[in-house]
């Protein structure tokens, strides 16, 4: 099996807080991998380590067959990244952002191709709009368009449907499925368990920076059913709560 991501003993702390603790896992190429966890579990930190945005204290990350610490720029050129906060450039219209980001990835998109990309996320009619003139959901979709501007092999989506209305969420699910069907690997974080169930081939449950479970959604449900039989099939949400507990969490 070919792995799009291979992580060994990854650790990262912020001061006294251990955000990621001795994390090891692999993501097969071509699959949709979901990282679930409560607020502050270490999901975004893990993604930023996999994207080369932060340096780990210990451990090794191999992305698309290349050691990230040695080939960060080359790897970044093959990644699509949508951050948790949309992080759009406030001074540039949607179309300008797509054209500029293509250049930053060493690609040259013509206007028609850039508009096609905006059309793919339902924003073609907002091509001339500045981010401040877009709704939260539209900004999210523009961020997604920017994540696809370099035709990436591996796409990171950090809570891509947060703040989207049900229609936009379903449309995004369709887009994720299309991207997977095109052979891309997707890694997404989400708070919506039904989203992970609907989209992900594999799910990792993360808490306090540690990976508590990693398997297909069906296998995780099966494991809980076997461990704590209740006479009915548990949901993935129950699996999530089984591993992470029910206490309130702060980010």
């Amino acid at each position: 099996m070919t792995f799009a991501i291979h992580v060994e003993n990854l650790s990262k702390s912020y001061g006294a807080v251990r955000a990621v603790a001795d994390l090891s896992f692999s993501v097969p190429a071509g699959c949709t991998f979901g990282l679930l966890g409560p607020n502050g579990a270490g999901k975004s930190t893990t993604l930023s380590l996999l994207q080369g945005l932060r340096q780990p204290e210990t451990g090794r990350v191999v992305v698309l067959g290349l050691d990230l610490s040695a080939h960060a720029a080359q790897v970044k050129g093959r990644l699509g990244v949508q951050l948790q906060h949309t992080s759009l450039m406030p001074d540039l219209a949607a179309l300008q952002q797509v054209l500029l980001f293509a250049r930053l990835y060493g690609r040259r998109l013509n206007r028609a191709a850039a508009l096609d990309l905006l059309r793919r996320v339902g924003l073609a009619e907002k091509a001339a709009a500045l981010p401040g003139q877009l709704s939260g959901g539209q900004q999210q979709r523009l961020a997604l368009a920017l994540a696809l501007v370099n035709d990436p092999e591996l796409v990171f989506l950090d809570e891509p449907t947060a703040g989207l209305d049900p229609q936009a969420r379903r449309n995004l699910w369709d887009l994720v499925r299309t991207l997977r069907a095109e052979g891309r690997t997707l890694v997404l974080t989400t708070h919506y368990i039904e989203e992970a169930e609907a989209l992900c081939d594999q799910v990792g449950i993360l808490d306090h920076g540690r990976l508590l479970a990693l398997d297909t959604p069906a296998a995780l449900v099966g494991q809980l059913a076997a461990a704590a039989p209740t006479g009915r099939a548990p949901s993935l949400e129950e699996v999530f709560l089984h591993f992470t507990g029910r206490a309130w969490r702060d980010a």
Binding site: K76, V81, L83, H85, L104, Y105, G106, A143, L146
Partner: peptide
């Protein structure tokens, strides 16, 4: 503060 640099840092351009 708006995270724009974080997104830019995800591109291959330093």
């Amino acid at each position: 503060t708006q995270g724009v640099f974080q997104r830019l840092a995800a591109t291959p351009t330093p």
